[in-house]
Amino acid sequence: MQEIINIFVKSIFVDNMIFAFFLGMCSYLAVSKTVKTSMGLGIAVVFVLLITVPLNYLIDNFLLKEGALAWISPKLASIDLSYLSFIVFIAVIAAMVQLVEMFIEKTSPVLYAQLGIFLPLIAVNCAILGASLFMQEREYNNIGEVIGFSLGSGIGWLLAIVGIAAIREKLRYSQIPAPLRGLGITFIITGLMAIAFMSFLGIKL
């Protein structure tokens, strides 16, 4: 249990998706103009990460990895399908995003109105595929750790996008040199935020 909490905290602060790995930068830059919309996108990302990463973990462990097919018959133990993981992961993500969208549309129209426009965007958000690939590379021991990791990464991403949105709302009233306005200053501020987050590197978990 302690291990799971460690991974959870670590993936929020130390291995933050945006500040340490730059994943999901495209939507981070495009949708961070107001706090309200960025909150919506952030929650949608947490939601989708929490579903797709554990699912991909199961698929990886029971279908794709070397020796993973041994549960069907020992003869299949030598098969290694891991080269298929990219295409399987992205297919799972695209399908799950579609499913989640339909499910929310049926069950909660209010939530759908808030998240609706962001959900299709998420299928091609690199944070989602990136989390699945990190999960594969870091070889977590059990599904609990994977859930901790996916929830932590999602919340870390949410934290980053809401933070930059709040700063950008204030920036609108400041005098910035014309060439730096918009994109340029957003990059530089993200860099400064990343330096602030580097202070968490010292934490030993």
Binding site: F19, P179, F187, I188, G191, A194
Partner: peptide, 21 residues
């Protein structure tokens, strides 16, 4: 470290936009 990459891209954008209004 990661933060410097962000700041450098910001500076490249700045230089490019300063030259092309």
């Amino acid at each position: 470290m990661p933060p410097m990459a962000l700041i450098l891209v910001g500076i490249i954008i700045w230089i490019q936009r300063a030259r092309n209004k």
